[in-house]
Amino acid sequence: MTPNPAMLEVRGLRQVFGGRTVLDLPEWTVARGEACLVLGPSGSGKSTLLNAIAGLATPTAGTVRVDGESMTDLAPAARDRLRARRIGLVLQTLHLIGVASVRDNLRLAQRLAGLPPDEARLAEVLEGLGIAALADAKARDLSVGEAQRVAIARAVVNRPPLLLADEPTSALDDASCALALDLLLAQARACGATLVVATHDQRVRERFDRRLDL
């Protein structure tokens, strides 16, 4: 059977909060392996879109299909499983579990996805992102730049076919912004993953194959 060429399919997606429509996206498709930028000012619905794709929020209307499965039609438990197995998330806050080591942050991602422990994959990812030396450091002791790499490592450790990043560069200076984007794009390519980056940061607009303006 030929795999669905679209990794992400959005149809008639609408999110209303308190009578105000914060997102209205009639149709949007992202192909397998594509790197797509969702660009828009604050409040334009970028995070809402990513939450709907990741199954963290239920939209008011519409459907989202991830890798051929309808995220919006799944029961909550199945949504959690689909997200854990097939979606890697890089959050704007780079949030890590501070009391755990870098290695344990990645192990948690493996375990919560229901995957067996894979120390070789952990080493590969840490090496690939240049943070192998930090493997045993507590996440709370990392610098912002180091935390950013760990957040990316955690998102890609399970080789998800879809990578979502919410404002990954907006708090960074130009050099760090470029580096973070390089790492994200390289890791997505290495995994063969589709990458969707939502940001209001105009500095990154030239780096993507496609762009969705909100």
Binding site: D80, R83, H95, I97, G98
Partner: peptide, 16 residues
């Protein structure tokens, strides 16, 4: 609470 939210994004069920 952010740790808990993060764990949810990683696939942890509410019961977990």
């Amino acid at each position: 609470r952010y740790d808990l939210a993060l764990l949810r994004t990683l696939g942890a069920r509410p019961a977990a």
